[in-house]
């Protein structure tokens, strides 16, 4: 499903947080929302997900304007947000509506994909951070949503788990090509996963750039073209220099 974000602005208690952001995610595209902290990436994602409805502008999903949550959208948050009183498998079944047996079968299948088939009866308190996030990913995927929204999904994880889960997400994307919007502040992550990178900048956040990345996936981290792009993004975000130096210049 495609997503069109058109001139979305959001004001919190009189302060403008994001200013007229527009971009599009085509069907099956992975779009990264990249920017420094506080520029309103997550605000935009919350507007798309429908968890926040107090924004100005419009969000169209598959050409139809929507304001509010939809079962077509799967959301993966920065923290796993698992229900602590449910086991791993019941957490994965949380969003399913079918019969118990059907749901469990589906959940088991997806738990195998994320490598947690031996932990289905565990409670969240018994899981490591990476395992909990994998459970959360499984919970979002089990309903096979046509669009996945990911809000800094790997930012709380260690470097190794992060790489592992990035590959896992890519594999899952390969399997049925959902449209994905992923919020991140990690340039390498954006370059590794995304077909398009929307760069936000400033406070209030404004659209700074919209880059299309044509390299086929899976990509090599050492790709020279990607390294050049990284350099370009760093320069355009103006974070290679300290604010003081910027003032002097």
């Amino acid at each position: 499903m495609s997503i069109q974000v058109d001139k979305v602005s959001r004001t919190f208690q009189g302060t403008l947080a994001v200013d007229e952001i527009s971009f599009e995610a085509k069907q099956g595209e992975i779009v990264g929302l990249l920017g420094t902290s506080g520029c309103g990436k997550s605000t935009i994602l919350r507007a798309i997900s429908g968890l926040d409805t107090e924004y100005d502008g419009t969000v169209c999903i598959h050409g139809k304007e929507t304001r509010g949550t939809s079962r077509e959208l799967g959301v993966i948050f920065q923290e796993p947000r698992l229900m602590p009183w449910l086991t791993v498998i019941d957490n994965v079944c949380f969003g399913l509506t079918g019969t118990k047996e059907e749901n469990r079968e589906k959940a088991r299948e997806i738990l195998r994909v994320v490598g947690l088939e031996d932990f289905e009866q565990h409670y969240p308190k018994q899981l490591s951070g990476g395992m909990a996030q994998r459970t959360a990913i499984a919970r979002a995927l089990v309903t096979a949503p046509s669009t996945l929204l990911l809000d800094e999904p790997f930012s709380a994880l260690d470097a190794f788990t992060k790489l592992q889960l990035q590959d896992m997400v890519l594999e899952l994307w390969e399997s049925y090509k959902p449209t994905m919007v992923i919020v991140t502040h990690d340039i390498d992550e954006a370059l590794y996963l995304c077909d398009r990178i929307v760069i936000l900048k400033g406070q209030p956040g404004e659209l700074h750039d919209n880059l299309e990345i044509t390299q086929p996936k899976p990509r090599k981290k050492s790709d020279t073209k990607l390294a050049e792009l990284k350099e370009y993004i760093l320069e355009s975000l103006d974070i290679s220099r300290t604010p003081k130096q910027r003032k002097e210049a």
């Binding site: 997900s49 429908g50 968890l51 949550t69 939809s70 079962r71 959208l73 959301v75 948050f77 923290e79 947000r81 229900m83 009183w85 949380f94 969003g95 309903t143």
Partner: peptide, 27 residues
């Protein structure tokens, strides 16, 4: 609130939110 948001993201109505999240969480 974050758990309630998960429920909302799955389109649960007020009654379902109470039964599936608020009740067990306040137990």
């Amino acid at each position: 609130r974050k758990l309630i948001e998960v429920g909302k993201a799955y389109g649960l109505n007020q009654f379902q939110l109470v039964r599936r999240i608020i009740l067990p969480a306040s137990l």
